[in-house]
Structures are given as structure tokens and as C-alpha cells.
């Protein structure tokens, strides 16, 4: 066997992606939730300058990718990035680095700490081999859903359930005006709540001048089975108000079901396995440990007819 010039352990989780051209690789960096300190960013810039092409690429899932890195420099790149605790990301049939919006610390729309959740998932589940295909997770802070929870294998969306203290309400009507879903209307000078229409965005709570509206409960709305790519699927609803501290366990439970049910299926994403097995099987599996949060029923991932040829065409 030839003498090993590089440490192959660095390649275990992937993240080194073959480029066109001899010896050259893209090195995808691990940036859970897309947040990184300016010091880390400076270190990345330094390494990119020294070993790369002179530019970086921002991946569509919030990673920074170093371009045109010679494979002989892998060990040096890993070591120098390590000086600022910057790690290399994953690729292939593994749990990918979770994406997240800015969360709730500075963004006025954010209902939940998505950055914290992304870091927890990254710490506990990063790089876990699925045995089948890639597995993507994202955290959106509110129903605006900038991270696009429905096109992830498991997508989380921050949610609050509003509750009114009628005595504190001054009948100003701001909540009804703010509610874009039509879940609130004014009648006799007081807001009337139609729970069926509420999507848990909390806009009523945010605008209420007196604090008459408050959050009775908070957590994640969870959608499962989405993906993009050649044959997109829109993920569907599996849980509501899942407590943030249970997100990691929830993902692990979905992953266990996927690993078992996709056995022998080859390179198939979770959504397609749900279509094959039926969503009831996954609902039943999740209900064992998350009974209070799993919805009574759901529908399979939704196929979008956006691929050529158009229906009816040859």
C-alpha cells in the first residue's frame, strides 16, 4: 500500500467534494444555523486565501465552501481552521448540518431560539449515517418560514398559541388588523378568536398594547418528508407545539423509523419511504414517545408536478 500522505479520518463525514480538474476539491465548512463569529470568518478568509482560489462560495444551506483546495493540503486546512474551532461539514447519506433563521434574539418576528436548536442538533446528530440518503433538518423561527421547513426531511417552525385576558383588552382592534389569517375579528368592541384559522404566528401578541394577548404555549410545528431536487415533495404536518428541548429526540425517532423502513430500498429519501409505507406508520411510531404533540392524522408528502414532461404530454 502506498504511503499515506493525508489523514483519512478527516474524510469520514464527507465535506470534501471532488471538483473538476486533477487533485482539486471543494471543502464545505460546518456552519450550523448560518451563524459564525467574526473571528471564525477571518480565519476562514485566511485559510481560503492561502489554500483556495481567492473566493469562497456560500452554499444554499448556509455553509461556506472553500474552492480549489488541493487534496494534499487537507491536513493543513483542517488544522488551521481548527485554530478557530471551525470544522468541516458533511455530505453524502448522512444527517447534514442544520440550517436556521436568525431566531428570536434580535429578529422581532422570531418566536423561538432556532439558533440554539440548530446547535443542539448539530452537536448530537451531525454526520449520523442514514444508510440510505441525505437527511436535512431546518429551524424556522416563525410561520414566515424563511428556512423552508416543508422542503426538509424534518422541518421545524416556531409557534405560539395565543390566549386573551379579556379584562386587560382595551378593544383597540390592532390584533384583528394584524391577523393576516382571518382568525381574529372584532365584535362588540372585543376580539373574537377562530382557532381553526390560527397558524400560531403570534402577531396578535406582538402588537397588543396592553399584553391582553399572551402565549399560552410555545414550541415547534413539525413537518416531515419534504425534499427538493429532481422530484420535489412538500413535507406534511406531524406535530404541533413540540417543546424545543425535545427536538433532538424527535429527529432521532424519525431517523430510526427511516433507517428501519428504508432497509434494502437503496438511495431513497425519507419522503418517498413515507409514500411507500403510508404516513400512519410514521405517526404511530412517533406517538409512542411524543403522544401529546403528534397530530391525529396527516397526509403523505405532496408531489408537485413541476417536472418535464408536463402531464398529458408525450
Amino acid at each position: 500500500m502506498a504511503e499515506q500522505k493525508i489523514d483519512l479520518r478527516n474524510l469520514k463525514a464527507g465535506g470534501f467534494i471532488k471538483e473538476r480538474g486533477k487533485d482539486l476539491f471543494t471543502v464545505r465548512l460546518r456552519v450550523p444555523g448560518g451563524r459564525l463569529s467574526v473571528d471564525r470568518l477571518a480565519k476562514i478568509a485566511e485559510v481560503a486565501q492561502k489554500y483556495g482560489k481567492g473566493y469562497v462560495h456560500l452554499s444554499v444551506r448556509q455553509s461556506i465552501e472553500l474552492i480549489n483546495v488541493n487534496f494534499a493540503d487537507f491536513d493543513a486546512v483542517v488544522a488551521e481552521l481548527g485554530e478557530e474551532q471551525q470544522k468541516v461539514a458533511s455530505c453524502g447519506a448522512r444527517v447534514r448540518v442544520p440550517t436556521a433563521c436568525g431566531g428570536c434574539e434580535y429578529n422581532p418576528n422570531g418566536l423561538i431560539d432556532t439558533q440554539k436548536s440548530a446547535l443542539e442538533v448539530d452537536e448530537k446528530l451531525f454526520g449520523t449515517a442514514t444508510g440510505h440518503h441525505k437527511f436535512k433538518v431546518c429551524f424556522a423561527g416563525c410561520p414566515f418560514d424563511c428556512p423552508k421547513s416543508s422542503i426538509n426531511d424534518v422541518g421545524f417552525q416556531g409557534a405560539v398559541w395565543p390566549s386573551l385576558d379579556a379584562d386587560a383588552c382595551i378593544g383597540c382592534g390592532l390584533c384583528a388588523k394584524s391577523c393576516t389569517e382571518g382568525a381574529l375579528a372584532m365584535a362588540d368592541g372585543k376580539p373574537v378568536f377562530d382557532a381553526q384559522k390560527c397558524i400560531y404566528c403570534g402577531d396578535c401578541i406582538k402588537v397588543c398594547p396592553t399584553g391582553a394577548w399572551s402565549a399560552a404555549k410555545k414550541g415547534y410545528t413539525v413537518r416531515i418528508g419534504g425534499k427538493w431536487g429532481r422530484r420535489p415533495l412538500v413535507g406534511t404536518l406531524y406535530a404541533t407545539f413540540l417543546p424545543e428541548e425535545r427536538a433532538v429526540d424527535f429527529i432521532a425517532a424519525v431517523l430510526a423509523w427511516y433507517q428501519e423502513k428504508a432497509e434494502g430500498a437503496g438511495r431513497v429519501r425519507l419522503g418517498d419511504i413515507i409514500i411507500r409505507e403510508g404516513c400512519q406508520s410514521l405517526l404511530d411510531h412517533l406517538r409512542r414517545d411524543f403522544a401529546g404533540f403528534v397530530v391525529a392524522e396527516t397526509v403523505p408528502p405532496q408531489v408537485i408536478v413541476n417536472q418535464i414532461p408536463l402531464p398529458g404530454q408525450a
Binding site: 422581532p108 382595551i170 383597540c172 388588523k177 394584524s178 393576516t180 402588537v207 398594547p209
Partner: peptide, 18 residues
């Protein structure tokens, strides 16, 4: 009307009515 009242509340002003 959806954004300005909420932002002013966030800045510490008291909304009285609309």
C-alpha cells in the same frame, strides 16, 4: 398598519387605540 404600531410598541411607546 400591520408593522408600524408593533415596531413603536417595541420601542417602548404605549399604544392607545386604532
Amino acid at each position: 398598519v400591520k408593522n408600524v404600531p408593533r415596531s413603536l410598541k417595541d420601542e417602548g411607546h404605549k399604544l392607545l387605540g386604532l
